[in-house]
Design a protein around this nucleic acid. Sequence first.
DNA 1: GCGCTTCATTGATTCAGGTCAATGAATGGG
DNA 2: CCCATTCATTGACCTGAATCAATGAAGCGC
Lengths: 233, 233
Amino acid sequence: MLKQSQLVERFLGRLDPEGMNAPLRLQFAAASRAVAVWRDQQARLDESCDQLVFLVSGSTKLVAHASQDREQVVAFHFEDDLVCVPARVRHAYKLVALRDANLVAMPYDKVIELGGRSPAILATLLQATRASLARCREKSIVLGRKAAPERVASLLVSMAGRVGNTDGKTVVLQLPMSRRDMADSLGITIETVSRQLTLLRERGMIETVGRSQIRILDLHALTQGAGFMTGAG
Amino acid sequence: MLKQSQLVERFLGRLDPEGMNAPLRLQFAAASRAVAVWRDQQARLDESCDQLVFLVSGSTKLVAHASQDREQVVAFHFEDDLVCVPARVRHAYKLVALRDANLVAMPYDKVIELGGRSPAILATLLQATRASLARCREKSIVLGRKAAPERVASLLVSMAGRVGNTDGKTVVLQLPMSRRDMADSLGITIETVSRQLTLLRERGMIETVGRSQIRILDLHALTQGAGFMTGAG
DNA sequence: GCGCTTCATTGATTCAGGTCAATGAATGGG
DNA sequence: CCCATTCATTGACCTGAATCAATGAAGCGC
């Protein structure tokens, strides 16, 4: 288990790889808070304002409550990700650990206040936010205009790019999320996820080992099945 | 019709309200391009890299091609918005004018290159990108977990917040987008949009005048119908 | 290593919204 | 001002995914 100070150090290094001056380091350290979150547990964050969260280790999901029992997984995060967890406005968001996670949190306003004069810090935040936006837009396309088979294929291709281990011609995914998480991310039910995975299995495009390992046997075909643009269009 | 130089001036003022120094102004002016785009026309932008677009006047939609004839409207934009139009990667994006628009475009990399040492410019971009991300996430919730009635209500409430004119107790919307645009934004068909608007009309929650004006008679009820969190949850 | 609990898979049925088709209202050009 | 064309609305029917229900497999504690 890493110490609080080590976690914060990593956070500061991520914000400004060049390294910030000592007084600023102290201010950031004072304003940030390192938290360990166990699997399936929700990070206890201040919901009254946006929070910047740095994921030192583990993996998390950002979940929005769409009233009652409906939940939408807005994003998955992995080691080294910078995440903005929105304050409760129209919907309530929560950050939940998929696997035991270490993270550092800080009110976003405070980050801007302290880092607002540092181009390096702002550039890091802008870069991270642009990446989040790009992924969120891709997700909107999937949720808005794709059928169930394409949705599941999209998730697998996306995960291949983020956490896939290439093993010869195949890609091995050790997915930290359950079928429910996948379903809540893709806007479908767990049954539909399961059925689609079965279809992909029958077609020889994937193999599954246990609940969390998926081996992609034909990434090209899977990418086709995800309905992405291929070459000219 | 505004002159090229005036459009660029507005862009620079939006990027850094404090005003940037003369050499930097010249560099930005040289790298940016003012474009007039007529209604229903696509802005001709370089698709090989992300473009930063400033909407001086008019309104636009950011559309993604989800293969063949399926289109997803990723976002709507109004006067003064800063938009990042993504390069063609997994999907092809295009920016289309809903009403005649004047915009200024510049490769995002170039913006970072020139403005990367200016905290004010980076702060503006970060702010705009965070707003886009917040809206995109809200859209993901709508697309992933909401039924047709809630989707249409969500759009109206969202538009009320962005372009609504309060007129006594009611909110008047002069919407620049067609039923098709709404449908492509909400991940449903034009027929379903039409049916839901009819239901809202029958329930006395809205009135419509012509094709583009909608008067919201009961914003509170509409917000309830959108499935947003209300108070404690 | 065995049983318990949770999670995933599979099957039967239902239903919201898509598709197809026709009618009706707006708007814009001549 | 009128007509033509596009856009919106309404209705009938169909389909893909949700729901309901049951079985089977993994993983965990003892």
